[in-house]
Nucleic acid binder design. Structure first.
Lengths: 248, 248
DNA sequence: AAGTGGTCTAGACCACAAA
DNA sequence: TTGTGGTCTAGACCACTTG
C-alpha cells in the first residue's frame, strides 16, 4: 500500500486541499462561469480533474452546500443555487452579561410586580388562553446607575409555577429564568418606536425619542414560557448580526 | 482487504453513525454530565469506545464544534464550552422580494447618483482608502406608490466596476448587485433613530418619527463590495429572527 | 518530545431518485 | 436500472502546542 502518498503540500499554501478546491469552485460560481442552475461535474469527475480522493471533493462541496451556494441531491447531481436572502446570525445577549462585559456596573430595579389572570392583551402576547395565571413584571435595567433599558415581561405560571414565589427585587427576571427554565425555541421581533410619556419617564429620556424595541417569545417545547419586551434608547444599543463565515 | 465492513446499519436507525455519535455526545453536554471546561476523551479513544473509525468521530465533533458546544485545539484536546448567548437566525430579504411577496407593488426611485473619489466619510463607511472610486446612490423604495424605505448606498467600483455603467433609475441597486456580485460575508447593524428633516421629507413622515435603521456591509472574500443604510419608518417594518433549531 | 486534532487516501457499500 | 451523493473504513502524514 502506498497509502497516503499525497503530502507535497508543504509547498506554499498552508491551505488545506479541500479548501483550495472549495475556493476554486466558489470562484467559478461567483464569477458566473457556473450560473445558477448549472449542474456541476460529478464528485468522481471532480476528483479526477483535481487529482484527489473523492472524499476531499465531498468535503469541499459540503462546505459550499452549507453556504447554500449549491444543492446536492442523490442521483440528480449538484447544481448551482439562485442567490438567496441574506441570512445572518444575531446574538442576543443577556443584558447583565452584556453590561458586565462592557465594564459597567449592573442593577435591576423592579417597578411593578403582579400576579393575575391573563387579560386579553396578556393572552395575545404570551399566546395562552385568557385567564391563565401570569406574572407580570416591569423593571429597569441600569448601567452605572443610569437607565439602560426598560423591560416588560409576562411569565406563564403554568410553565414556571416557581416564579410566583420570587420577588424579583434586585434580581433580573431574565437571568433568573435562564438559570432555571431552559428554552428550546425563541423568536425575536425587532422594531423601532417613539418613547411615550411612560417610557420617557422611566428611562429618563425626552418624549418621542427613538428607541429600539426587542420582543422575545420563548418556548419550552410546545409550552410558552415567557414574553418580554425590551426598550432601549436609540443611542444606547444596537444589534450586530454577522453572516456566519463558513470555514470548513 | 475486508475494507468497509460496517453496514450493519440497516438496523432501525436510518440515522448516520456520525449523527448518532454527535447526538450522544451532545446529550452528555446539555445534561451537564460533561460540564463546561470538561475535556473530552481524544478522538482515538472515542473511536475505540464507539467502535468506529476516527474520521467518523471527527465528523461528529466537527458538527458539535460548529454548534459551538465544544472547542477543539491541537494537542490541547477538545473541551466543553460555556453556554453561549441566544443565537438567532436573522433573514434580511431583498426589499423588492419582500414587498412582492406581501402582494404590494414595488418601485425604486433614484434620487441621486454620483461617481466620485471616496470622501473620508465614504472611506470609513465602506472600509476602503479615501480616494477610491465609489458610486454613491440615494433612493426610495416605494410600496403601492408610498415611500417604504430610504436607501443610501456606496458601491466600491474597484470591486464592481460594471456598476459605473448602470443608471439605477428604476432598478434597485440591491437587486442588481445580488444578481451580479454574490457576497461571501456580511455584517448588519440594527439601530433606531429619529427622522431628521431630510429623512422625513423623503419618506413623507413627520420629523422625529422613530425609524428602524439597518446598515449592511458586504464582502466578497477580502474585498469590500457595498455599504448600505436602509431606513424604515417604525410602523412599516420589523425584523424577525428565530432561534436556529439545531438539527445536526 | 509527544500527543492531539486536521487532513488525506483508495477503496467500499448504501440509499435515493431520475431515466 | 443506473448514476449520484452520503457515509464509512483503516490506515497515514502533518502541524500545532503543550509539557
Amino acid at each position: 500500500m502506498s497509502d497516503a502518498e499525497p503530502r507535497k503540500r508543504t509547498d506554499t499554501a498552508a491551505l488545506p486541499r479541500y479548501r483550495e478546491i472549495c475556493d476554486a469552485l466558489r470562484q467559478r460560481i461567483v464569477t458566473g462561469a457556473w450560473a445558477p442552475g448549472y449542474r456541476l461535474p460529478s464528485e468522481h469527475e471532480l476528483a479526477r480533474s483535481f487529482g484527489c480522493a473523492r472524499m476531499t471533493i465531498s468535503k469541499a462541496l459540503g462546505a459550499l452546500a452549507e453556504q447554500r451556494l449549491i444543492t446536492r441531491r442523490r442521483r440528480a447531481g449538484t447544481t448551482v443555487n439562485a442567490p438567496r436572502a441574506q441570512e445572518s446570525i444575531l446574538e442576543i445577549h443577556d443584558i447583565e452579561a452584556e453590561l458586565v462585559a462592557a465594564g459597567s456596573s449592573y442593577e435591576y430595579q423592579c417597578l411593578d410586580r403582579e400576579i393575575r389572570p391573563a387579560s386579553e392583551e396578556d393572552a395575545a402576547a404570551l399566546g395562552v388562553a385568557a385567564g391563565t395565571p401570569v406574572l407580570r413584571l416591569t423593571g429597569v435595567h441600569r448601567a452605572d446607575g443610569r437607565p439602560h433599558a426598560l423591560e416588560e415581561r409576562l411569565i406563564n405560571l403554568q410553565s414556571v409555577p416557581e416564579a410566583s414565589g420570587e420577588r424579583f427585587t434586585g434580581t433580573s427576571p431574565g437571568g433568573w429564568l435562564l438559570k432555571r427554565i431552559p428554552w428550546t425555541d425563541a423568536e425575536h421581533q425587532i422594531s423601532a418606536l417613539n418613547a411615550d410619556a411612560a417610557i420617557a419617564r422611566r428611562l429618563d429620556i425626552p418624549r418621542r425619542k427613538a428607541c429600539l424595541c426587542i420582543e422575545r417569545n420563548t418556548w419550552l417545547d410546545a409550552k410558552r414560557v415567557t414574553h418580554v419586551r425590551l426598550i432601549y434608547p436609540c443611542d444606547q444599543h444596537r444589534l450586530i448580526a454577522r453572516f456566519r463565515h463558513k470555514r470548513a
